[in-house]
């Protein structure tokens, strides 16, 4: 099962237009298999978030090949990329992006509405996702009333409720204390155990130790190891 690659990127390049142009990625190769935990480390400005945006289909690469779930995404149009992102990917951000004026349930429901999940299934799936991150009892709480750790767990629930093949996390533990960091890593590990490929962008070396494979992004390319 772990042999099936869900992400196969070769020679990814990205240069930001500026005077002079700013090359960020030049030749990133990355393979991620089902159920694999991958950590990508790197200093500030190394291009970690740029790589995550490309892997998450939020930003196109300037060159290279990116195959996600056996689909060459560099040739897809906007709609096809949106559809693939909706069905295949889940995101967890450092800033969690929990909508404060909506309840925990409504935050999770956003994802199900986006993928047009059958209505009769939604309540059960929301409940299961919230219970899975230990927020079953906070389903009716407004997002703004949750603590930082709860918000991050809610973000994980929202990311996994759509049953993605790949979970992309950008500094998911950046704002958390040790206990909450451990909680979040456990939840991500649980997803990996269920077959989800988990890619974490991080500064945190504890995450590198937690990962099956750690890479360091340096000079626009990935090197194996935590640097």
């Amino acid at each position: 099962m772990r042999e099936t690659s869900v992400i196969a990127a070769t020679g990814l390049r990205r240069t930001y237009p500026a005077q002079p142009p700013v090359p960020v990625l030049h030749g990133v190769d990355l393979v991620v298999r089902r159920g694999e935990r991958v950590a990508v480390l790197g200093g500030s400005g190394a291009g970690k978030s740029t790589l995550l945006n490309i892997l998450g289909l939020l930003d196109p690469p300037d060159g290279g090949s990116y195959v996600l779930l056996e689909t060459q995404v560099t040739t897809l149009n906007h709609r096809e990329r949106d559809r693939l992102r909706a069905t295949a990917l889940g995101f967890v951000f450092q800033a969690h992006h929990v909508l404060g004026h909506r309840t925990a349930s409504e935050n999770v429901a956003l994802k199900l509405a986006t993928i047009a999940a059958p209505r009769r299934e939604r309540a059960d799936r929301i409940h299961a996702a919230l219970a899975g991150v230990g927020l079953g009892h906070r389903a009716a709480a407004l997002g703004r009333t949750l603590s930082g750790g709860e918000k991050q767990r809610l973000a994980i629930a929202r990311a996994v409720v759509g049953n993605p093949a790949v979970l992309l996390a950008d500094e998911p533990t950046g704002n958390l204390d040790d206990d909450n960091t451990a909680n979040v890593l456990n939840l991500l590990a649980a997803q990996a155990s269920a077959g989800v490929a988990v890619v974490v962008i991080t500064h945190d070396r504890r995450v590198a130790r937690w990962a099956d494979t750690a890479y360091t992004l340096s000079d626009g390319a990935l090197e194996v190891g935590a640097g």
Partner: peptide
């Protein structure tokens, strides 16, 4: 929020 919705897959 718009960024979030796009990340979730909204066109």
């Amino acid at each position: 929020e718009i960024g979030l919705r796009r990340a979730l897959g909204a066109s």
